[in-house]
């Protein structure tokens, strides 16, 4: 991640009322640092898109203020528009135009000089693996290709900050992983990113900080690591072949915060890091004991989300996600 400088977004008690009484966003305040990837998470209807619309000058602000790239969203909207790239939740490329024509049009509307624009379009088409499809009408694109084109369209004018509303919605795992790579690459080269997503592991792997919003209110805002830490951190569960009490030994390991024993089973809390696992395993085997089962429970943002919103993303999405128990069964013997 790039070194951070000032705030690229400053939102202060931002609110949006859709008449007569839908409080879509209800007084949210946050800062996004320059060079940061900031994640906005929340269930359907939480107010994510509405927040993006206000910050990108597309929706009026009912109350509160916001600054983007140092410009007031309400009073200096033209300056804000020069600084931002937007990748909306829906796909808005023109079906009847070719991929490259969509890019060139967006470039023109952002007043990128024609000569620069050609080079930029080529670069973006390469970055998003759309070179071969660039001369085809968007009508013939697959959903994944459209998403990638949409991201390219948000970047034609080299914005300071990119707003992305669920950029990986509906993409398969491979494409999603690729999009993450793009985002990381762009961020390394200095782009700040404000993104919403439904995929919590996505937020976990991409975002320096995340905010969880529900019913228009920010419930928590922190780094993914600290949010997970608040839930008590990682737990290592061991089953050992012999009944000798290992608690004393386990407590001597510095990063272990707590050990509880139930017969042959040990529950070891490792709140900050899992680095101690090899030392634990070595210590046990060097005592001539066998580990018959080992599992490592690592809280994910799913648990954080559940605690904060009272809902799981699974309920939200109606789709099964992998369990938060990463079962590392190393079999009956460890020797």
């Amino acid at each position: 991640m790039r070194r951070l400088m000032g705030s690229i977004i400053e939102a202060d008690k931002l609110s949006k009322l859709y008449p007569p009484k839908t409080k879509a966003v209800d007084g949210v305040s946050f800062n996004v640092e320059e060079g940061e990837v900031f994640g906005f998470l929340g269930p359907n209807g939480a107010g994510k898109t509405t927040t993006i619309k206000m910050l990108t000058t597309l929706a009026s602000i009912t109350s509160g203020t916001a600054k983007v790239a140092g410009f007031d969203v309400k009073h200096e909207s033209a300056r804000v528009r020069e600084s931002i790239g937007v990748v909306p939740q829906e796909l808005t490329a023109d079906d009847e135009l070719k991929g490259v024509e969509n890019l060139m049009l967006l470039g023109k509307l952002h007043h990128v000089p024609q000569s620069e624009m050609k080079e930029k379009a080529r670069e973006l088409l390469r970055l998003f693996d759309l070179e071969e499809a660039s001369e085809r009408r968007v009508r013939t694109y697959s959903g994944g290709m459209r998403r990638r084109l949409q991201m390219a369209m948000g970047l034609v004018h080299s914005p300071k900050i990119l707003f992305m509303d669920e950029p990986t919605l509906g993409l398969d795992i491979q494409t999603r992983t690729k999009v993450w790579e793009y985002i990381k690459k762009l961020n390394v080269s200095g782009l700040s990113v404000f993104m919403t997503t439904h995929y919590l592991e996505e937020a976990d792997s991409l975002c320096r900080r995340v905010a969880i919003i529900d019913h228009g209110v920010i419930k928590v805002l922190d780094t993914p690591a600290r949010l997970k830490e608040r839930l008590g951190g990682n737990v290592l569960i061991l089953e050992v072949s012999n009944g000798v009490d290992l608690s004393e030994f386990l407590r001597t390991i510095p990063t272990v915060s707590d050990v509880s024993r139930d017969g042959h089973m040990y529950k070891i809390k490792l709140p900050k890091t899992e680095d101690a696992i090899p030392a634990i395993v070595d210590g046990i085997t060097s005592r001539g004991l066998k580990i018959t089962q080992i599992s490592f429970l690592k809280p994910t943002l799913d648990e954080v989300f559940l605690e904060v919103t009272g809902r799981t993303m699974r309920e939200e999405e109606g789709e099964a996600q992998e369990s938060w128990v990463q079962n590392v069964n190393i079999g009956r013997s460890s020797s």
């Binding site: 000058t57 528009r81 829906e90 509307l109």
Partner: peptide
């Protein structure tokens, strides 16, 4: 309806 208008409205034109 297709969002194209929003895309151009977010541009500095």
């Amino acid at each position: 309806q297709l969002g194209f208008l929003n895309t151009i409205l977010a541009a500095p034109i």
